[in-house]
Amino acid sequence: MLIGSKVYYDANSGNVIVITPEFAGPVVETTKEQDFKLYKSLEEKVFEEVNFIQLEHGAYKFDRFKGGEIVRIDLETKEPLFLYPVEEGTEPNSPSNSLESQINDLRQRLDESDTRNEKLVEENTLNQIALMELHAMLLSTLQD
């Protein structure tokens, strides 16, 4: 069985409290109540003021590979917000959507652009045909 990480966060701010590890093999998924007993950082919180999101096993591997760390949860979308290491000489950045999410958004925008471009190519071809027909009509009306 594959069990993804759980990201526990403050329900009011979205700030991450604890991220449980992923598991694979003969394991049983824990409940919120069990996790509150297992993790000291959760035990210190008010149960009702803590929410969590369950990630798929292996989710956000690319972000983790790039050094991304989930620091907050967007309270509207329930998507994790990542903070990435800052290179020397650059300004620190604020938490942002995952790279996977950004890639998926770009893929969707590219697909939409491709669709629009195909329609524009069709319109352009029709316009060129119409112009050629108009040109032929104009030429036929001119005297020699």
Rank of each mutant, 00 (worst) to 15 (best):
E100S: 09
N124K: 03
T125M: 01
N127W: 14
A59F: 03
T31D: 12
L134V: 00
A11V: 02
L55W: 01
K37V: 11
E22D: 02
A59G: 06
P95A: 03
V28I: 10
E22P: 02
M132G: 15
L134H: 13
Q54W: 14
V18E: 06
Y9C: 00
L55T: 04
E118C: 09
K61P: 03
L106M: 06
V71T: 07
A130Y: 10
V50L: 06
L75I: 09
K6Q: 02
E133M: 06
I53W: 05
P85R: 12
T90L: 02
V27E: 11
F65N: 04
P21L: 07
T141Q: 13
F23H: 15
K66V: 01
M1G: 12
D105A: 11
E133N: 03
E112F: 14
I53L: 13
G67E: 02
G58C: 03
G14Q: 04
M132I: 01
F82H: 02
T90S: 06
D111S: 15
N93I: 10
T20F: 00
E49S: 09
E79P: 08
F65W: 11
I17P: 09
K37E: 07
N93H: 05
E123W: 13
F23E: 05
D63C: 03
V18R: 09
N97D: 05
S13H: 15
I129D: 14
M132V: 05
S113E: 11
K45T: 02
T125H: 00
G14S: 10
A59C: 04
E123I: 11
V28C: 04
L134T: 02
Q54Y: 04
L38W: 06
E112P: 12
N15L: 11
N127V: 15
I19Y: 09
N127S: 10
E43F: 13
P85D: 10
D114K: 08
E44F: 06
S41T: 12
L120G: 09
R116N: 15
E118D: 14
M132A: 14
E87Q: 07
L142R: 14
S113I: 08
F82Q: 00
S13E: 15
E48H: 12
P80D: 08
E87G: 11
F82C: 01
L99S: 08
L38A: 14
R109K: 15
Y39A: 09
F36T: 11
S101C: 05
K61W: 07
T90P: 00
N104D: 09
I73A: 05
F36D: 01
Y8P: 00
V121M: 07
I70E: 00
D105Q: 11
R72G: 14
Q108P: 13
